[in-house]
Simulated scan of single mutants.
Amino acid sequence: MTTQQLLDERYGRRTSRRATRAWWITVAVVAVAATTALGWSTVATSMASVDADATGYEVVDERTVTVTYQVVAPTDATVACALEAQDVEHGVVGWRVVEHAVQAGQAQAFTDTIPTVAGATTGLLNSCWFA
């Protein structure tokens, strides 16, 4: 017998099996609830996301850049996309937000023009979201 068991027996301290069981049940319920909440959060976030990829750009002249990109959304909706034009030093010289209606699950390609305030060297798709 260990010292702790001897002291518990001597002074009448005992851990109740009922209390121990209740504690483990509580821990299990909290663990299952946390796992369920995390799983649902992950699924809900992925269902509400828009997938967008830039496929090309063209510097038309000193004041204009065109950006070609494709968008895939999980539902029929209007999607807004932020496009930007950058100069040699990666400074933003043009910015535009455009909206397009997209069909669920289908990749749709778009080409939009960005007006610039200075000479640009590249055009980028910054991000897309549900409008």
Rank of each mutant, 00 (worst) to 15 (best):
T2Y: 03
T3M: 15
Q4P: 13
Q5N: 07
Q5P: 05
L6R: 15
D8P: 00
D8A: 14
E9P: 08
R10F: 09
Y11E: 10
Y11T: 12
Y11F: 15
G12W: 09
R14K: 11
R14Q: 09
R14N: 12
T15N: 06
S16T: 13
S16I: 07
A19N: 10
T20W: 10
A22N: 08
I25E: 14
V27S: 03
V27E: 03
V27G: 02
A28P: 04
V29E: 07
V29G: 01
V32W: 09
A33Y: 02
A34H: 03
A34P: 12
T35N: 08
T36K: 04
W40L: 13
S41E: 13
V43L: 14
T45L: 09
T45R: 04
S46D: 14
A48Q: 12
V50S: 09
D51Q: 11
A52L: 00
D53I: 01
G56W: 05
Y57E: 00
Y57H: 06
V59A: 00
V60Y: 01
E62Y: 01
R63G: 02
V65N: 10
V67N: 02
T68D: 06
Y69D: 02
Y69G: 01
Q70N: 14
V72I: 04
V72R: 04
V72P: 00
V72G: 05
P74V: 10
T75D: 12
D76L: 07
A77P: 05
A77K: 03
V79K: 02
C81N: 01
A82N: 11
L83M: 09
E84M: 05
E84A: 08
A85P: 04
Q86L: 11
V88Y: 06
V88E: 15
V88N: 15
E89D: 15
H90M: 11
H90D: 15
G91Y: 02
G94E: 01
G94K: 00
W95Q: 06
R96N: 06
V97I: 11
V98F: 00
V98K: 03
H100K: 12
Q103G: 13
A107Y: 06
A107M: 08
A107G: 12
A109M: 13
I114A: 02
V117Q: 03
V117M: 06
A118T: 05
G119L: 01
A120Q: 04
T121A: 14
T122H: 02
G123I: 07
L124T: 08
C128I: 07
W129R: 06
